[in-house]
């Protein structure tokens, strides 16, 4: 398959990429190409110009920044999956990156390209929604940050404007909390049929004033519960019903199962489906993966 013809420009810096975007309205940015090139080949996208940002060194790399991670937009999935820094601060992100596609895809695909593409069957958006990440974006009006919750606006749609370049992703450290990503992947493409990310802290509660009067012991409970699901919804969905059901509950198999069952309330009935897995099927299986994710996350606290 061949893409429709396009003009090709290579940006040497973020500033130059901005100038090229301004000069070529409707141009597409090319990073690793593992989302864009398939679209070009299928002619689902046929931009007049493609701006290659793949060699901009300042967009690459993983560092710690204040209380979290800063990941350059051009960092590959393979680099994220292998990073001890990512594993320490956001284990679920490394776990998700290690399950994208296959090794050759992970060598070329980038986190920034993946997020800007916003495929509902993608893994990283779900993890970043659960971990409360923010996106750093350079636009014609300067730099701004967008919360993951506001970044994804629908199926393959983001709040990025025509002249915007996603430069970095900031992930608050989840060290001390347990976090995990589990997915049911399509056996050929490895895209997520269902993907669930969970981040859980475990602390103690006084048990309320009555318990204090009675001198009852403090109880170990789940705190800071964040759960997000993807693959069966147009954009990553924070599961507030699951989170509310698990918060302040003692970590136990029945509590995890009850919280996971609450996902049906989060999902509603308008779910994505295809010939491989219908929306009804995905919904039926979702609670199983939610339970696995929260159990795995709770098991990693400490």
């Amino acid at each position: 398959m061949f893409a429709a013809d396009f003009e090709y420009y290579r940006a040497g810096s973020v500033a130059e990429a901005g100038q090229l975007l301004a000069a070529h309205p409707g141009a597409k940015l090319l990073a690793g190409g593992h989302s864009l090139i398939p679209l070009l080949k299928l002619r689902l996208a046929a931009p007049a110009a493609v701006i290659d940002i793949g060699r901009i060194a300042e967009l690459r790399g993983i560092s710690t920044d204040g209380d979290g991670l800063r990941i350059g937009a051009l960092t590959t999935h393979a680099e994220i999956a292998a990073s001890d820094t990512v594993k320490e601060h956001a284990a679920a992100l490394a776990e998700a990156a290690s399950q994208i596609g296959d090794p050759a895809v992970r060598n070329r695909g980038t986190i920034g390209g993946n997020l800007a593409h916003a495929d509902p069957a993608s893994d990283l958006p779900t993890v970043l929604a659960a971990l409360g990440a923010t996106m750093t974006v350079k636009g014609s009006g300067g730099e701004r940050t967008i919360d993951a919750a506001d970044f994804f606006t629908g199926m393959m749609a983001t709040s990025l404007g025509d002249n915007d370049l996603l430069t970095a992703i900031r992930v608050p450290s989840a060290a001390g909390r347990g976090n995990a990503y589990v997915k049911f992947s399509h056996p050929a493409s490895r895209y997520a049929v269902i993907g669930v990310a969970a981040s859980i802290g475990i602390g103690t509660t006084g048990g309320g004033w009555m318990a204090k009067i009675k001198g009852e012991p403090k109880e170990t409970v789940c705190t800071d519960v964040a759960v997000a699901i993807g693959g069966l919804v147009p954009k990553p969905l924070r599961c507030s019903a699951v989170e509310a059901a698990l918060k302040d509950q003692a970590p136990s198999e029945p509590a995890f199962a009850a919280a996971a069952a609450a996902v049906s309330g989060d999902l509603g009935d308008d779910l994505l489906g295809d010939v491989f897995a219908s929306g009804d099927y995905r919904k039926a299986v979702a609670s199983v993966y939610v339970q696995r994710a929260i159990e795995a996350a709770a098991g990693r606290v400490g």
Binding site: I37, P38, A104
Partner: peptide, 27 residues
């Protein structure tokens, strides 16, 4: 497959594997 799933087009670029059907020559 021409869709980066089958791996028949795998080559090494600077020693690292890549699917050459999903890589532009200019890259």
């Amino acid at each position: 497959c021409d869709t980066s799933q089958c791996g028949s087009c795998t080559v090494l670029i600077d020693g690292v594997s890549a699917k050459s059907c999903t890589t532009l020559a200019v890259q």
